[in-house]
Design a protein around this nucleic acid. Sequence first.
DNA 1: GCCGATTGGTTCAATCTTAAACCATCTCGC
DNA 2: GCGAGATGGTTTAAGATTGAACCAATCGGC
Lengths: 136, 136
Amino acid sequence: MPKIDAAKVWSLNYQLLMTVITAVAPAIADLGLETKELFLLAEVDEHPHPAELAAKLCMPKPTVTVNVKRLEDAGFLRRDIDRADLRRHRLSLTPSGRQAMTKGLALVSHAFGERLGRLSAAEQAQLKGLLEKLAG
Amino acid sequence: MPKIDAAKVWSLNYQLLMTVITAVAPAIADLGLETKELFLLAEVDEHPHPAELAAKLCMPKPTVTVNVKRLEDAGFLRRDIDRADLRRHRLSLTPSGRQAMTKGLALVSHAFGERLGRLSAAEQAQLKGLLEKLAG
DNA sequence: GCCGATTGGTTCAATCTTAAACCATCTCGC
DNA sequence: GCGAGATGGTTTAAGATTGAACCAATCGGC
């Protein structure tokens, strides 16, 4: 019976991610960011429009609106109207936003990297490959 | 440079989990459960005390209190005072709670299993092993 | 035994989230 | 063009989350 229990794997994985992010949350907060805001910032380069962000981050549109507003007020984000489609807003990181994002991701990398350190380099690569297959 | 970017892996993984859970959320709701409540129920057998649940699920104590209360009101959970330690509450699933949990986990298994189906049985086992190393 | 420190759980109030309804703009077919 | 439907984003109001303060019971050292 090689079949594994998918719900168990999901749950295990979830707890892993949450443990890591909970541990770094205070340090991220010191940068002036909520963790959700950090992950939003991290996707802005690739997905500059709020609707895409909502889809990518699995969060409802109003949540994006609110978070974007906060990030804009904090000076981490600029919001310009897309001249090609007046409904759209094109988001872009300000220098300080980029800096905060970089620092924040470094914190996450460090914390999660400690866990990943339990795996060999080959296993790490393997894991990444498997997740990419799943997430694609 | 074999070193992988841990934050990327974290984020990839997070999006994978969220995509899956977002997709099943409506079906879970049909069982009368929020997704968080389902995962709380799923841990009750192993962690019958609210404080342990809070730690295991990475949620603050008041959140556990509220969710437990809802689950109790809905008839999915019983809450008895632990006679050995009068501060503690010992939680236990009612029959209908167990049934809802089983059905809910089956939904998650099915949805996540579809993703896992992209991997061979060997890869699935590999993934599970890697995650267990990380989460332990 | 008794007192200070710890732990388990709840309450409260402030904050965050989000479904529903909304407006503005765009797109497509005619 | 023009109108119906789709899409991008915001507002509002209702519900969820959670830090801080709290009470009750236990534990540890004396």
